[in-house]
């Protein structure tokens, strides 16, 4: 379990991480999502005691990282920066890590085998491809057989086979009851692996929710309707108890009513339709909308948004609270 409480990191005037409070629980994959520069890596470095928080606190199983005896046996991490000396062999890289934490040397061979690097164990790391480097980083994370694993952008630059391997690995680690915390800037990636989702933007917590709930809220399906007789259509819908909201370019968007029903309503009232199309907002869109808002709130703090933009936000991301 990783617990963050009001975790904050400032670099001079710039706030990289802004009062983050959330808990990463065991037995599931928790996705840590945010655009590049949102503060994911900084947060992860603070979890590992590498960066000192400006304020707030982070604990691993209730303890500060630097107080952990042999920390690699509690938490293993793959950081974005690989941290391997190019002139050192994979075996020796894992060996010094193992020795520093009193991990037996046989574990080095075990993890090399697990990530499929046994054949190149004695080769210098500088000859490694991106994928091999990533596998070596994962071997290092697994070395101490830790209960908590943390991966920073693990699929970056990997080929499809490598991506599939990492996804499967993360799921199986969670199934073994371990805490798995994985960052990404890709919603699509998270949708495939994560059970729980923590979203940050500009260092601030935007969402802390189960994946299922996030999908339910955000993969919104609606019907887009376009009509030259807009008012007549609105009246007809209103009489039938169907709510429509303004969409872009004078369209209307209707939630929770099938396209067929709307078409029949229009026909019954003699309203001409130019468009009647079922729409599905992707998770990626929902995520971008969510994080874009955080950017906008920061950029124009205090200034009201132009009305059209405000509407868009309500329709897309504000779905859950509009419906109440």
């Amino acid at each position: 379990m990783i617990e963050l409480e009001g975790l904050t990191k400032r670099y001079g005037e710039k706030v990289a991480v802004d009062h983050l409070t959330f808990t990463v629980r065991p037995g599931i994959v928790t996705g840590f999502l945010g655009p590049n520069g949102a503060g994911k890596s900084t947060t992860m470095r603070m979890i590992l005691g590498l960066d000192h928080p400006t304020a707030g606190d982070v604990r691993i199983d209730g303890t500060h990282y630097e107080r952990l005896q042999d920390p690699l046996t509690y938490i293993g991490a793959l950081l974005e920066a690989k941290g391997v000396h190019p002139g050192r062999s994979a075996y020796n890289h894992l060996l010094w890590l193992a020795q520093s934490n009193g991990i037996p040397e046989r574990r080095v061979r075990e993890v090399l085998d697990e990530v499929g690097l046994t054949a190149v164990a004695r080769k210098k790391a500088k000859g490694f491809s991106l994928g091999m480097g990533q596998r070596l980083g994962i071997a290092a994370a697994l070395l101490g057989d830790p209960r908590i694993l943390m991966f920073d952008e693990p699929v970056n630059g990997l080929d499809p086979e490598g991506i599939h391997w990492i996804r499967t690995l993360m799921k199986s680690l969670a199934q073994q009851g371990r805490t798995v915390f994985v960052s990404s800037h890709l919603m699509s990636e998270m949708a495939l692996t994560a059970d729980h989702l923590v979203v940050i933007g500009q260092g601030r917590l935007l969402a802390d929710t189960s994946m299922a709930q996030f999908i339910e809220r955000n993969s919104r399906s609606y019907v887009r309707v376009r009509s030259p007789q807009r008012e007549a259509l609105l009246d007809a819908l209103h009489q039938a108890g169907v709510t429509a909201v303004d969409g872009p370019d004078g369209t209307l968007e209707v939630d929770g009513t099938p396209a067929g029903t709307i078409g029949e309503l229009a026909a019954a009232n003699g309203v001409v339709l130019h468009e009647l199309s079922p729409q599905q907002a992707s998770l990626e869109e929902a995520f971008m909308q969510l994080t874009a808002e955080s950017v906008e709130y920061h950029a124009h703090a205090g200034t009201p948004l132009p009305p059209q933009q405000q509407q868009r936000q309500q329709q897309q991301w504000g779905e859950s609270w509009r419906k109440g």
Binding site: L48, G49, L50, A77, A81, G83, H85, P86, S100, A140
Partner: peptide, 18 residues
């Protein structure tokens, strides 16, 4: 300085936080 130029310092201090 090898620790810093290779980024290894993060792995080192994660392994030995003291």
């Amino acid at each position: 300085s090898n620790e810093y130029s290779t980024g290894m310092i993060r792995a080192s201090l994660a392994a030995v936080p003291k």
